[in-house]
């Protein structure tokens, strides 16, 4: 059978199994759009649809209890009309210690070879073993942020480049500035995905030579100086030290497009919704953090959204330090919120 016949047959068989799911009926947005269209045809002004209040720091958070069939599977989410962030325990997430160490080491190796502001795509079959959700596309990306340790320069840079990320007055919080990081969010693009066969081949060759079966590529940079990846967003992280010299990070990023993000946390992670003076937020403590620069292997943070007319700001106050408590993070987050909404 030719490849053409095989494709046709594969689609026929597949199509018979694929149902319309939730899209079997038009959803509310589609019906509303048609209603608007029909009203226009009839010369009737469509009903005014009230937009949600766009408070300077309007945050909506939803606790999703969930989920039938998986008693241990709990999800917490914060979202607005533009951004949804879910914090979930991967059902099959296998936090095998040796795999975790291998992947983390690989990330560190790659990251150490990157210049500031560069990012790379890494392939390793171990990624798929560690996170079975990724077994078909075991790719991750790492990046190296641009760093500054000068508070004046950092504030000036934020004022010029990202006024939305300027911090309120945090005097009295006991925090002292330690550095600022500007980092591209790492998005897996179509181009990244298309690298998979090539990276797999290279990894196999390395394995045949007795080396670690992994391969990676630095993302190309386009003529404008940006990476050729879709919808890159920047995160601005201000790093502080508390009175006990523990590191505390305050991150802000702006998302202008629709974003649906899943943060998969380890089984032992705790996650809960919390209320910060009216702003719904999420507290997450991940005890199996495998970030490239992790020292303690854990990370905890309070995260919340601020809905703006043209974007959503994602705030986080976090720390890798074992000595920093949830209460301390919450206190700083409250100070942030009150400072942003005097």
């Amino acid at each position: 059978m030719s490849i053409h016949d095989r494709l046709t047959e594969a689609y026929r068989q597949s199509a018979s199994r694929i149902g319309p799911g939730q899209a079997a009926n038009p959803d509310a947005r589609v019906l509303a759009e048609f209603e608007k269209y029909a009203a226009g045809k009839r010369g009737i002004r469509p009903k005014i649809r009230w937009k949600p209040q766009l408070l300077q720091l309007a945050v909506v958070a939803v606790l999703i209890g969930v989920l039938s069939g998986f008693a241990h599977y709990v999800s917490v989410r914060i979202h607005d009309e533009r951004v949804s962030i879910r914090y979930e325990e991967g059902i099959h997430q296998a936090m095998d210690a040796s795999l975790q160490a291998e992947v983390q080491s690989l990330m560190q190796q790659v990251r150490s070879q990157l210049a500031e502001s560069e990012s790379a795509v890494i392939y390793s079959p171990s990624i798929g073993q560690l996170f079975p959700e990724l077994v078909k596309m075991p790719l991750i990306s790492v990046s190296k942020p641009a760093v500054t340790s000068d508070w004046t320069l950092w504030r000036k840079m934020l004022a010029q480049e990202a006024p939305f990320a300027e911090l309120p007055d945090l005097s009295g919080s006991g925090l002292s500035f330690d550095g600022g990081e500007r980092e591209r969010l790492m998005v897996l693009s179509e181009e990244d995905r298309s690298l998979l066969p090539e990276l797999q081949r290279e990894a196999k060759e390395r394995a045949d030579e007795g080396k670690l079966p992994a391969a990676w590529r630095i993302r190309p940079v386009n003529s404008a100086g940006g990476e050729s990846a879709p919808e890159l967003s920047l995160q601005y992280t201000s790093i502080f030290r508390d009175a006990a010299r523990n590191q505390v990070e305050i991150g802000v990023r702006r998302v202008s497009e629709r974003a649906d993000v899943l943060l998969s946390v380890g089984r032992s992670a705790s996650r809960e919704s919390t209320n910060l003076d009216g702003a719904e937020a999420v507290y997450v403590k991940n005890e199996h953090y495998i970030g490239a620069d992790s020292v303690t292997g854990q990370y905890q943070m309070v995260q919340w959204l601020s809905t703006q007319p043209d974007s959503t700001l994602v705030y986080s106050v976090g720390s890798e330090s074992l000595a920093v408590t949830k209460d301390e993070l919450v206190r700083i987050a409250r100070q942030m919120i009150s400072g942003l909404n005097p």
Binding site: E133, L188, D260, V261, G291
Partner: peptide, 27 residues
């Protein structure tokens, strides 16, 4: 959608949590 959707599979240095490609599925 592909262009718009900021999603997927990134280990963000400062996000400190793993974001995986496919959201864990319902049963």
């Amino acid at each position: 959608w592909r262009r718009k959707l900021w999603r997927i599979m990134r280990l963000n240095q400062r996000n400190r949590l793993l974001t995986v490609d496919m959201p864990a599925s319902l049963p």
